[in-house]
Design a protein around this nucleic acid. Structure first.
Lengths: 248, 248
DNA sequence: CATTATTGTCTAAAAAAAAGACAATAAATC
DNA sequence: GATTTATTGTCTTTTTTTTAGACAATAATG
């Protein structure tokens, strides 16, 4: 009963996921930490089954490694330089896990393929950080959110993958309305502005930002939100469901 | 002496290239036609050697299939649905080429891997259609330019790949200055406008378009071009080389 | 040398973006 | 309960950008 059966997967191809969340004016990335790699983190990744599409594989990998389901996913780039693979580091991982593999009835040859060159398809996911409760998989010793500006040491070319994911996210933020995937179901205009300012790393004027967003005609205004703060309560908004009630 | 030695390549991964050219207010795609596939065209594609990066592989494939070298290339998407592979069609190709393979000392098992599921990395290339003289490779019976609006019957999901390449090109045209890769070294402003109008499929005002492009500060004006037409001769322009003479 | 078909460039109008201003209001303070 | 404080909601003004209009310049034609 092997976990990883070489025959079940497409060889030399992996998927790596950059999971973005937003909280407290910080754009964060969810990083599970593999038990073996002391003080080195990796992006949640995995392999593609022969009988699943790339998108399906990415969703499955996310669920397996973090417990996250039903989220926004975007394929953004393939990484395939020769230098990106690191047989030495991977060899270390395999060596440390030797006993585990042995228990599963796997011999050295069954995992040797992991040391080959790999091409990796990069996906990024956008999630509501508050709704997500990361599950720590058996492989990992932790699974936590890190500010993109203060990332820990990452293995292979994973730091580069995150950088590219962020570039892609920034570019897309102006084209598609993907930003709202990072917010809870209801939110204030200030929260939207904080999100945009954090991702694009530039300030907006409150009055003009509100006009810009509302002119998109994608939000519906709900009741006010009483925060307990000593000031006027802001309205809550919700992303409009297409085909909803609509105006008469 | 086998042409395709399974061991030399990454399995189940291919690269497909959409080569764009521009002429006569038409955006065109260069399509080699494989000898076997009667009345069905395919994108120039190939496989990735174990010892080359993805970009290197794409450049090599382009050179092998079309003779084109030193051009602008952009990776735009990976295609990996289960339906995209078509063992039947590929089987037909292999069956027809059976004798050729036999001559090369290859037995059925040596090409069987081509019938497996493939993931394909999409690249698009931008070339000056006038500078390029397509070479017809041994595999192909023709290699010609087709208007993207009047494409012939394409195998597998190649029509879809071209559509996605075009979408990506349109999106990037506003961000990067990639459009000029489709023009000759010197060109008139009208040619630039024709290019933009064709790709984006929308008209521009002559006066405003000129201002928009010149304000980018990327073109240098050369001498006038005397076309022989009964009107004012337009200026020629050239894409500024960075680190050139510059203004004092 | 007037005619024709474009090109180069200027100015005016319209639209959009940015900046400024101020009343409204929910809680805290006195 | 009046006053203060920190924001929010929204309106107006200013500035910038985009779009539209206008016309002289010019290379070949007849």
């Amino acid at each position: 009963m092997k976990i990883l059966n070489k025959e079940d997967y497409i060889e030399q191809v992996s998927i790596d996921c950059v999971i973005f969340g937003f909280h407290d004016r910080q754009l964060r990335v969810l990083l599970p930490k593999i038990r073996v790699l002391k003080d080195i983190w990796t992006l949640p990744g995995g392999f593609i089954l022969q009988q699943e599409s790339l998108d399906e594989a990415a969703l499955r990998i996310l669920a397996e490694r973090t417990g996250i389901r039903d989220i926004y996913l975007e394929q953004f780039k393939v990484f395939g330089s020769l230098e990106r693979s690191s047989p030495g580091l991977m060899g270390e991982v395999l060596e440390t896990h030797k006993d585990t593999f042995a228990e599963l009835g796997m011999v050295a040859d069954d995992v040797k393929w992991l040391q080959r060159r790999f091409i990796s398809i990069g996906y990024y996911a956008l999630v509501d950080i508050h709704q997500v409760v990361p599950e720590i998989s058996e492989l990992d010793e932790s699974c936590e959110w890190y500010d993109v500006k203060e990332l820990p040491m990452l293995a292979f070319d994973h730091a580069d993958i995150i950088t590219k994911a962020l570039e892609s996210l920034r570019l897309m933020l102006n084209h598609k309305l993907i930003g709202f995937n990072l917010l809870p179901e209801t939110f204030t205009m200030k929260e939207v502005q904080d999100l945009y300012e954090t991702i694009l790393d530039k300030p907006f004027r409150r009055n003009n930002f509100q006009k810009m967003i509302l002119d998109l005609d994608i939000l519906e205004r709900l009741e006010k939100k009483f925060t307990g703060a000593a000031n006027k309560a802001p309205y809550l908004y919700r992303f409009k469901q297409k085909g909803g009630e609509g105006e008469s």
